[in-house]
Amino acid sequence: MDGVHDLGGKEGFGPIDVDEPETPFHYPWEGRVWAIVQSTGVADWTIDWWRHVRELIEPGDYLTRRYFDQWMQTQTAALIDSGVLTVEEVSTGVSQSAPEAGGPPMRPDEVLPAAASFAEDFSREIDAAPAFTVGDRVRARSMGAPGHCRLPQYARGRAGVIHAHHGAHVLPDASAQGEERAEHIYSVVFEADALWPEASGRRDRVFLDLWESYLERP
């Protein structure tokens, strides 16, 4: 989707707050949100569905709410969509149904093992041979896609070079719809002056990790 989440290269934003405190959470509620997201969820969710739920936040809220506020909004909306909570329950803070059948909630002593086990492997073996090899010139597809898509607008239609091939990974576009499909994935390098009109003569480069169906021969 061509949402406001696709921020790369958008102009008009001001300076970065480089002096903020280094503490992981700036308000107590931010740590609670982080923890709630690590501890709750539904079995059929994928990381890409969760990201898509986040990018569906109202554009004004997406651009103005703090990161962990967006996480809370995402987790709440996803739990409602999956039938775990209702809007009314969240609004009133009062449960209107018996506790869910199912396993007990995560215990405190399960936290550190869970943090280590969250190393999810997204690589897959596929039969198809890779269409590109390192050094090939490619062009990113000019069109976006409905739903979740990890091809940023700023790279669309632009020419780059295959920098590395990383085997095949789960395709987020499908994964965000609850389907698993894998494609070859490549690091593609773009010269800055192929992306930005003001970058002429600047020797900077931008590397993106792009799936094969995001790319075509120039």
């Binding site: 509620w29 709630i36 969240v90 449960s95 995560m106």
Partner: peptide
Amino acid sequence: VKALESLLVEKGLLDSRTVDAWV
């Protein structure tokens, strides 16, 4: 956040001590 946490605890889906442990 406070309302969400207490709702999830009430539903038996979350243990507040686990939230503390994640933080």
